[in-house]
Design a protein around this nucleic acid. Structure first.
Lengths: 221, 221
DNA sequence: CGAAGCTGTGAATCGTGATTCACTTCTTCG
DNA sequence: CGAAGAAGTGAATCACGATTCACAGCTTCG
């Protein structure tokens, strides 16, 4: 049995694979999913088209993985900042909303792709999974709030979904606006930012805080 | 000059055209956009493929028109029930939310297609236009509320978008769930409905009412 | 070295569904 | 009726990007 894969070759293999995923993500992050053909990604990864298919069974699988990684990063962040510690449910929701919004506005093209751009079914499925993730993260906070008597009992799943939807929809407009203006000037982070981000974040945080069904007597922050 | 279009032929032409639009919409309403190829629509309209192209420059244009009509109906309804009359902004928002949710749950497949299903860019553009329509309808109510001192001043556009997003996201789950269960049993409106709709509607109405930034002193319903 | 098995290559192929167009059928009017 | 212009037809074509695959180049080990 003359050939046996070794540590070194396996490392090389992994490196190539990672390069392809990275290229796919990079392409989505700066041209959107629409721009991300297999050809283009392969070129970007300095690899032949066939190589992509030696590492992934299909385009859908490749991008599902790329989306999964990017989304996981974001979701982890939101989960982290909403984790139970001394804070009230309200504060925890606010922290999650703020983190979500800030990250999205920082990387608008990727955020738009992750959030709203038309994609393959396999990728869409990944998107769905992560939306569910966000929803569950918020739902957990809401349940804690109900248990502790801070919030009145309610359909936490639906309310959490509504929070996620509110964030998404309110951000998609500004996100695509930023993308459009970027299309003109060449490079990122130019002089006058697309739009004032802070007020937008503040509005969203307030909206989401208010929307929570507080228990009869208020605790005032 | 031997031939001149006349009233009768023009009527026939219009009828054919209408038939095609209706077929397109019907197809979307019961198989989703994914099922709506030009071929299929043509058959459904009892017309040849070429005829479709004699009436519409492209598939995108056909479906853009079909979506436009369906969406306009829905939007008109929401605009109507949120129109200013004696009611408070809160009540008007609640009425809009309720109407939106009820209609969506009544025609889940169409609602899903209108709201969230992946579609052609031309159709997506139409969708965007109508989301903006809903947003503006709610924004108008919010502005009235601010003017009348019922609500505190705020970014009405963003809040309105958040309301629309909350509705959309909270409904998409139940909508696709209903669709999936419909896929099993053959005909609509069978015995045990997909899920209890009323509580869902109530949750959404309450969520949206709560989320509005009320002026300092509360009016209590 | 050379057999065996792996990864990399990229031009050619394939699938899908929108779109075309040469032809037939219908309608109008001198 | 017959010319002329319009609507209808549907098999053939086309566009486009994902996918394949025969071949070339490494890597391992007896």
């Amino acid at each position: 049995m003359p050939y046996r894969p070794t540590e070194r070759t396996e490392a090389r293999r992994t490196a190539t694979r990672e390069g392809i995923v990275a290229a796919a993500l990079a392409q989505v992050a700066d041209g959107g999913y629409a721009s991300a053909g297999v050809q283009v990604v392969a070129e970007r990864a300095a690899v032949a088209v066939g190589t992509v298919y030696r590492h992934f069974p299909s385009k859908g699988d490749l991008f599902a993985e790329a989306f999964r990684r990017a989304s996981q990063r974001e979701l982890d962040l939101v989960v982290r900042v909403t984790e139970p510690d001394g804070r009230s449910a309200r504060e925890r929701v606010a922290a999650g909303v703020e983190a979500f919004a800030r990250r999205a506005l920082a990387g608008p093209v990727l955020a738009y792709a992750l959030l709203a751009e038309p994609v393959d079914p396999a990728v869409e499925a990944e998107r769905l999974r992560f939306r569910t993730g966000y929803r569950d993260a918020f739902a957990r906070v809401l349940e804690d709030g109900v248990r502790d008597g801070e919030l009145s009992p309610h359909d936490t799943h639906t309310v959490a979904a509504a929070l996620v939807g509110a964030l998404g929809e309110a951000l998609v407009g500004p996100l695509s606006a930023t993308m459009r203006s970027r299309a003109h000037s060449a490079e990122p982070s130019a002089a006058g930012q697309g739009g004032a981000k802070e007020p937008l974040v503040a509005t969203l945080v307030q909206f989401c805080e208010e929307a929570l069904p507080r228990a009869h007597e208020r605790v005032h922050a």
